[in-house]
Amino acid sequence: MRSGFAPALLALSITLAAAPVPAQQPLPPIRDMETLVVSGVQPGPGMWKISRDDHTLYVLGTLSPLPKRVEWESRDVEAVIAQAQEVIQAPSVSIDGKLGIFQRLLLAPKALSARKNPDGQTLQQVVPADMYARWLVLKRKYMGNDRSVEEWRPMLAALELYDEAMDDIGLKQYGMVSPVVEKMARRHKVPLTTTRVTILIEDPKVALQEFRESKLDDVDCFSRTMQRLESDLEMMRERANAWAVGDITTLKALPYTDQNEACIKAVSQAQVLRKRAGDIEAKVRERWLDAAELALKNNRVSLAVLPMRELLKPDGYAAQLRARGYSVEEPGEPVGGARVTE
């Protein structure tokens, strides 16, 4: 799943620039896919169960991308929501400014120009030569002869390329899980708790101008996105299939190459945001963990949505709750078990 950081920046049209990094080692050539993407009605993964005493928080791990022709069979999750007192949404970031709609329209031309590299530079000028050669191969494969992105900042060009590639190989990045969970919560009249961190830009005109003129170290994001498209597509499909059929063992076993962390780091360390919001990543993490602990204190049953990587990482959100003294059971564990059946 793409992080909330990048869409938030795009929504406000605050975009990123690049700084050169050392050349990467040669990578294997692009391989055509052979793994078929599953389709039809699929169960998805079981839920993690985080508990203390007789209070339980069920956590559904999400993954991006997922097979775009899959219909998620969500009965188990709905069974939890039907008895829950709260549903906690996935962690995210939004950026807002004190602007009326007319002011937003006036800023639109400047905002669109902010996605371009400072000083009119092209991608070829701001990334290493070997990296740009790899970009041309991938762009030709997934975007044809589109020249519009050649002036974009590396991170935004990479995100556009990634979106096109996912569509071509039968995967979808958004809208598969969270909207379904939120719809079920509303149907059962269960309160939804947002864990979104909102960064309020008090001086949007100044901030936008700062960003237009600034550079940011997003070449790592650019490089890792290309690396993932060059060498990880087969495993990406396997992970998507494993999530769809609920195969947690395979999800844990497959190496997880994720460019999102590099892209999130590039955004969160942007000076224009950091001096206005501080450590964004830490705020996002603490907001979700605080909501989870409050739910475990107040509710007999709650449900939360969280990126799968935060459930599987040794230092992820689930591990941090375990360190705080909560019991954490993975799907399929013999004690209790996180999957709820009707």
Rank of each mutant, 00 (worst) to 15 (best):
L312H: 06
D167A: 11
P154T: 04
T198Q: 04
A129F: 01
A111I: 01
A108P: 01
A291E: 15
R147N: 09
L273M: 09
R285V: 06
M184N: 08
F5C: 09
P204L: 02
H55I: 03
D119A: 14
I50N: 08
D76W: 06
A266P: 05
E151D: 12
P43E: 03
P45R: 06
G120P: 13
L60Q: 14
R237I: 12
I14Y: 04
R224W: 07
P314N: 08
R276Q: 07
L229G: 08
Y256H: 10
K68R: 13
K49S: 15
Q320P: 09
V137Q: 15
K265C: 05
A292R: 05
G40H: 06
L99K: 00
T194F: 00
A84C: 10
D220S: 10
E151Y: 07
I169D: 03
Q125Y: 08
K110G: 08
G332W: 05
K275C: 04
R224M: 10
E293Y: 05
Q42W: 05
V301G: 00
M166Q: 15
R31H: 08
P67N: 07
R212M: 15
L254H: 04
M131E: 15
G246W: 12
T249V: 10
L138H: 03
I199M: 02
Y162P: 12
G61I: 09
M47Q: 11
K183E: 15
I95G: 01
I199P: 05
V41N: 06
I201M: 02
L9S: 10
R274H: 09
T249A: 14
T225C: 12
Q227I: 06
G97K: 02
W135C: 04
D54T: 10
R212W: 00
A319S: 14
V77K: 09
E182P: 04
E86G: 00
V38H: 07
F211L: 13
E238H: 04
I201N: 01
L60M: 11
Q89W: 00
A11H: 09
V177G: 06
P334I: 08
T257V: 08
V181K: 03
K110Q: 12
V197E: 07
S223L: 04
G120W: 12
P334A: 08
A282E: 14
V206R: 13
G100D: 09
R140S: 14
E333C: 07
S178M: 11
P128M: 03
L192V: 11
L156E: 15
